[in-house]
Amino acid sequence: MSDTGYHPEELLIAVIARMLEGCGHIAVGVSSPIPGSAALLRRQLDGGRTKVSIIGSELPEFRTDGGIDLFDCAGQGRIDAFFLSGGQIDGQANINLVGVGDYPRQKVRWSGSFGSAYLYFTVPRVILFREEHTPRVLVDKVDFISAPGVSPPNVHRPGGPVGLVTTRCLFSFDPAHGRFRLESVHPGHTVAEVKAETGFAFDCPESVPDTPAPDARILQLVRETVAPQIADAYPKFARRLWNVASAA
């Protein structure tokens, strides 16, 4: 833990939980321990009313009935929020999960697009999350569009990106203009640093506030209630941060 009294991950969990306010059903995909913790925190803040589905969880209240169920659910509009990431993310919120260089014989190949090309269109509130905030990740143009940030008006698209959270800052996304806007900078980071480490152009107001630090109540909820719940799907993460084992 740093001298702030909280883990950097706990700040990100609190930031994302704020962005999830008002959601009835939040789904969490693979490799998403921080977004998953944020969804569980949101549920606690809402008195347990929010439904959270976590791929990979064996706990009955969070488990899903597999991929077909998840995608059908999203197609019908039954999922309010989801999380996506990218090996590259560009200024128009296009994401690339496929690789670097000319497709198909790329110099770096990542896993693949997973469900992004569908969920980015069907889930109303998609939060982009990537811890690494460098010009190699946040690029001007992605090398491969796994899923586009914006679509022409005739394309059926109830969903799309609302913002991007990194270890340095929070951006919001405006689909009408296809641009990110810097909303807040996390404690210990600066606007100048964000500008230097971002490979795309973005809107930046004259005064950018600091991201609020998580308060004592939030930290208590995360550590006492969320930690054992997320430990079921992400045991290594929960052990490293909180030394907590699964509630299952």
Binding site: G67, I68, F71, G75, V98, G99, P104, R105, Q106, K107, V108, R109, W110, G112, S113, F114, G115, S116, A117, Y118, S146
Partner: peptide, 22 residues
């Protein structure tokens, strides 16, 4: 080995997205 084969061009890669495979 998947990454190395794509880089070497020794396999043909057909990219999809999960709900399209289903």
């Amino acid at each position: 080995r998947f990454g190395a084969a794509v880089k070497a061009g020794s396999i043909r890669i057909v990219d999809s997205t999960c709900p399209a495979v289903y």
